[in-house]
C-alpha cells in the first residue's frame, strides 16, 4: 500500500498548479462578461436574503427573531451554507462531462476536475461570508467568542462536499440522468435544512428526525449556534463529521476503483 500512496502524493504535487488553474478558471469564467463581476458573489445572496425575508416574514408573521438572531441573519446563514453545498455538488457532478474532451486526450489525475469545482465554489462561498458579517453588524448581532468556532461547521461542510462530490461525479459518468435526480434530491435537502423557518416547529410536530438525518441541517444548526452564541450542538457536530469522513472515504475508494473505466463511458 505504501508505494501507491507515495505515488499519489508525488502526482498531486506535480499537478498542484493545474488544480489552482482549474479553480481560477471556474471563478474567472463565472463572472466574465458581467459588469459587476465578482461583486455578484456579494449582491446575489443579499438580494435573495431580502426577498426571502419579505416573503416569509409576511407569510409567517415573523418580524423579530429566529434562533436567537434577527431573521435576515438567520436566513442568510442558512442559505449561504446550503447554496455552497448545492453549487459544489452540482459542479462536481458536471465536471467530468464538461472536461471529457480533455480527459480523453491527456493524462491528468481525474479527481482534479471535481475537486477544482468544489474548491472554486468554496472560495466563492468564503467571499460571500462578508455579506453575512456586514448584515450581522448592521442588525446589531452581539459579537461573541463562539463566532470563532464557526470555522468548525464550515470545515465539516467542506469535507461533506468533497465526499459527496466525488461520489456523485463518478456515478454521473455511468448514469447521466443522475444529474436531474440530484436536482430533485437537492430540493428535498433544501426544505429539510430549516433555511427560512424555525426548526423548533418541526421538532414540536414530531418531524425532527427529518432535520436530524440531514447533515447539511446539522452544519447549519451549528453555524447558527456559533453566530448567536448558544454554542455547538455536539451530537450534530459528531454526526456531520462522521458523515463527511465516511462519504469521503467511500468516495475516494469508489473513484479510485472506477477511474480507469469511466473514460470508456464518456
Amino acid at each position: 500500500m505504501s508505494i501507491p500512496n507515495i505515488h499519489v502524493i508525488r502526482n498531486f504535487k506535480k499537478y498542484k498548479y493545474l488544480l489552482s488553474q482549474l479553480v481560477i478558471k471556474e471563478i474567472k469564467l463565472k463572472y466574465r462578461r458581467s459588469y459587476l463581476g465578482i461583486v455578484w458573489t456579494l449582491i446575489e445572496p443579499l438580494l435573495t436574503m431580502i426577498v426571502l425575508t419579505m416573503v416569509f416574514s409576511a407569510f409567517l408573521g415573523k418580524d423579530g427573531e429566529a434562533g436567537g438572531m434577527p431573521f435576515p441573519v438567520y436566513i442568510l446563514a442558512g442559505r449561504l451554507l446550503y447554496s455552497f453545498f448545492s453549487g459544489a455538488t452540482k459542479g462536481a457532478m458536471k465536471s467530468i462531462r464538461v472536461n471529457a474532451a480533455m480527459i480523453k486526450k491527456v493524462y491528468v489525475p481525474k479527481y482534479m476536475y471535481p475537486l477544482a469545482s468544489i474548491l472554486s465554489n468554496f472560495i466563492i462561498f468564503a467571499i460571500s461570508l462578508i455579506v453575512l458579517f456586514g448584515v450581522a453588524a448592521v442588525m446589531r448581532v452581539k459579537p461573541n467568542l463562539w463566532m470563532f468556532a464557526a470555522i468548525i461547521p464550515i470545515i465539516e461542510l467542506l469535507i461533506i462536499c468533497i465526499g459527496s462530490g466525488l461520489l456523485l461525479s463518478i456515478m454521473a459518468v455511468f448514469f447521466r440522468d443522475l444529474e436531474y435526480l440530484w436536482g430533485v434530491a437537492l430540493m428535498l435537502i433544501m426544505y429539510t435544512c430549516a433555511i427560512f423557518y424555525e426548526a423548533d416547529r418541526l421538532y414540536a410536530r414530531g418531524y425532527g428526525w427529518l432535520l436530524n438525518v440531514n447533515p447539511i441541517y446539522g452544519v447549519i444548526r451549528n453555524f447558527r449556534g456559533c453566530i448567536s452564541g448558544t454554542g455547538l450542538h455536539m451530537p450534530s457536530l459528531w454526526y456531520c463529521l462522521a458523515f463527511g469522513l465516511v462519504s469521503t472515504i467511500v468516495g475516494v475508494i469508489f473513484f479510485y476503483k472506477k477511474q480507469d473505466d469511466f473514460i470508456l463511458n464518456l
Partner: peptide, 18 residues
C-alpha cells in the same frame, strides 16, 4: 477552453501537461 483567451489557455494547457 473556448471562453479563455489564447494567453490564458497557454497556462491552462501547460498545467494540464503537468
Amino acid at each position: 477552453d473556448p471562453q479563455y483567451t489564447g494567453a490564458e489557455n497557454i497556462y491552462l494547457y501547460g498545467a494540464i501537461l503537468g
